[in-house]
Amino acid sequence: MEKRLSRIPGNQGITYGTFVFVDEGHTLGNALSYVINQYPGIKICAYTVPHPAENKIHFNIQTTGESAIEVLKRGLQDLERICDHTIETFDTAYKNFKSNDTPMDTT
């Protein structure tokens, strides 16, 4: 399998990192930067689509001390758990809805 994640080289140290996600767009970029922006010790976390014709994003993380890779890893893990929790919550809600099948009071 070809590599889809890489880091743009630079000498800003471990607290700075720009990661390139190939074949990803706003879907992952925006969701992931939302999750990472919630952490303490994040100076900047943002992404950009460098060119609309190229299917990739540049994902930048700058921290006050932690390693950018560690933060990225934690962000992905948390996003994964958020997804798990969303599926669980949705399934419970759907089961409840199916078992009652009474229209919810929307007023």
Binding site: K3, R4, L5, S6, R7, F19, F21, E24, T27, L28, A31, I69, L72, K73, L76, Q77, L79, E80, C83, D84, T86, I87, F90, D91
Partner: peptide, 23 residues
């Protein structure tokens, strides 16, 4: 649920790449 799984899968792919290949 399929859509949420797709997002989850994206995370897993990149996590696996971080773990095994490094950046």
């Amino acid at each position: 649920t399929e859509a949420v799984k797709v997002l989850k899968n994206k995370c897993r792919i990149f996590l696996a790449e971080l773990e095994h290949a490094g950046v």
